[in-house]
Design a protein around this nucleic acid. Structure first.
Lengths: 170, 170
DNA sequence: TAGCGCATGTAATATGTTACATGATTTC
DNA sequence: GAAATCATGTAACATATTACATGCGCTA
């Protein structure tokens, strides 16, 4: 996932690996806060794949590698953004996409979020079925984690619902 | 984390790798649903470390390996359970512990959850500070992911608070 | 006899962290 | 002149997934 987040940052402007880390701390740390040990190898990979280019410069006596995104990089990024969200893959993945949804036409963003909400509703139904099955055999802690799961998904679906409404209004 | 979940299941009774997978589907799938590709290697590892023992049997013509937990395995499991929860390590990790909190004296469980709630409150404060910093430069989607983070932690902390009250009552 | 459920396992791959190594500039 | 910040990078490790390979027993 980190490669897409990096591409997303590079959509705005050219950055060094260090810059990317700083931006993460101040913007995405809430759902994604990669270490240098994953940022630098990811940049290498992206360069080898021809999605970005590095320019080596010396600024104030400091050696730097400034990365810029290519057209192909932009395409790969938008393609990732347009893939439907899979809420099963941790909510961090979803937030990573929503974070960059400004790059998508509003109608597409709306459609993706509507789909997501439907999927989560189905999942809630499944968990509620599971609950009736196991509530007699599970202890209070065990069943509580299931209740947490249900309540959590209800919170998430409520939040996305409100977000969607705001989005439609403007 | 999977090794502790496996130890937790084995606290109740002896199980095969296949059994463990089935139990996960029907109880923890909501926050942990490991594949066979991680269950079997984990069982091997636990056996090599002397925390569990395998007994090879043939039942209804089917070859099986039934695993039982050792005293050392129980100690390692309880030790893991008694470590304070770190809410930074995904909420799955927290649910995994709460799931097995029935193995802990009630007062300890309460203390751990109280600590957790305090930590999350601090994190919420940090995110709110971050919000005032970036709200002028972030776009609607970018800032929304931060709002999600804050709302999400508030939901989580509220849920744990209610859970704690229920726990204290009984 | 085909397919499903039970049952175990491995190899390739993905994805990341932590700790370490290095060295410059800026700030106190 | 010490400490913090800027800046890049690698090696070892952790953790898990996916896909594949194997084979038995039961049921329609």
């Amino acid at each position: 996932m980190i490669k897409f987040v990096i591409l997303g940052f590079l959509m705005h402007k050219e950055l060094t690996g260090y810059d990317i880390k700083q931006i993460m701390i101040h913007s995405t740390s809430n759902f994604m806060n990669a270490s240098f040990g994953s940022i630098y190898p990811a940049l290498d990979r992206l360069e080898k794949d021809g999605l970005i280019t590095a320019t080596k410069i010396i600024e104030k006596g400091k050696y730097k590698k400034v990365y810029a995104i290519h057209e192909t990089g932009k395409e790969v990024f938008i393609q990732w953004l347009e893939e439907p969200m899979d809420f099963m893959k941790s909510y961090e993945d979803i937030l990573a996409k929503i974070f960059f949804y400004g790059h998508l036409p509003k109608e597409k963003a709306i459609r993706h979020i509507e789909h997501l909400i439907e999927d989560i509703h189905k999942k809630i139904e499944n968990l509620e079925k599971l609950e009736t099955k196991i509530k007699d055999i599970a202890d209070r802690f065990e069943i509580s984690t299931l209740y947490f799961g249900i309540d959590h998904l209800k919170f998430v679906v409520g939040w996305y619902g409100r977000f969607l409404n705001d989005l439609k209004k403007i």
